[in-house]
């Protein structure tokens, strides 16, 4: 329970981070969204045994996080906390793919371990990029960007409602759970018999609330259309941001920079 409370404090913190005023924060959200998507697509487009060529891609989340004034420890912690589905599935690779892929002197490394490491790196890169995106952009700005990029308004508007009332309802839910655990004294009380009414009540209250919100909207002239005043502007700097990064990603996709550098260094040492 406490963990979940904390999780939501975390969202609040992400929201807080997203309201800074660094140059990265001030970029049009569309530029950041599009660039991040290009980034993720490029990262996952590598073959499954790729490791070294993926490394330079850390530059994107690192630079954004640094310029966006995001605390690295916080990001790392969040990446570690993330649902581990990818790792659960990935860990089967070393068990199944036992063909030796790398001979490093006497050390032989199976293909499975290589691909597992690759999954790990992809995981950190993609999750990191998504977290950085939201922390330097803010949820509502992402919503605005989605809308401007052609996502249906109905969807965008209820994304915003979801985000707004998430905080309210989670607080309500945690109060209820607290009340339940205070009175169930360790045994019973948390079974399905109490669960139904507990969650059911929350749901009924939620639906009543939705009705009151609708009422409040009607009182202020709601006619089925949500209008938001938020001028988004693509300036040359946004164009530069998108194309600059994308060009770098594509370059890094085709040229294995670490390998080239490593070669140069080992050549030199020889």
């Amino acid at each position: 329970m406490a963990k979940i409370d904390k999780n939501f404090l975390d969202i609040g913190y992400t929201d807080h981070l997203s309201r800074q005023l660094t140059p990265i924060h001030q970029l049009d959200p569309r530029a950041k969204l599009v660039t991040t998507l290009v980034f993720i697509t490029t990262v996952v487009s590598f073959g499954k045994y790729e490791i070294s060529a993926l490394v330079p891609f850390f530059i994107y989340p690192v630079v954004l996080a640094a310029m966006g004034n995001l605390p690295p420890a916080y990001l790392l912690k969040k990446i570690l906390l993330v649902s581990p589905f990818a790792l659960l599935i990935g860990i089967f690779n070393p068990l199944i793919d036992r063909d030796i892929l790398i001979n490093l002197g006497d050390i032989r490394i199976a293909g499975g371990w290589v691909s597992f490491t690759s999954i790990l790196i992809r995981f950190i890169l993609t999750v990191g990029a998504a977290l950085v995106l939201i922390a330097v952009t803010g949820f509502n700005a992402v919503c605005m960007a989605l809308q401007k990029l052609g996502v249906p308004k109905v969807f965008v508007v209820q994304l915003m409602f979801l985000h707004r009332y998430m905080f309210v309802l989670v607080e309500e839910a945690s109060r209820m759970v607290r009340a339940r655990s205070l009175r169930s004294l360790g045994n019973g009380g948390a079974g399905i018999k109490t669960y139904g009414p507990l969650v059911g009540h929350l749901l009924l209250r939620t639906m009543d609330r939705a009705q009151r919100i609708h009422l409040a909207m009607c009182c202020r002239g709601f006619d089925g259309q949500i209008r938001i005043m938020k001028p988004l502007k693509i300036r040359p700097i946004e164009i530069g941001f998108i194309f600059g990064w994308s060009a770098l990603f594509i370059f890094m996709r085709f040229f294995n920079i670490p390998l080239l550098m490593g070669n140069t260094i080992t050549e030199f040492l020889r």
Partner: peptide, 29 residues
């Protein structure tokens, strides 16, 4: 437009992402 209504639960009334957006909701409509 003539009758402005303030509800008992402000959370029901402040449904927009920021205070500014919320206050602007009516005039925009």
């Amino acid at each position: 437009r003539t009758v402005g209504m303030v509800f008992q639960e402000p959370d029901d009334q402040l449904f927009m992402p920021t205070v500014f957006d919320d206050v602007a909701f009516g005039p925009l409509n």
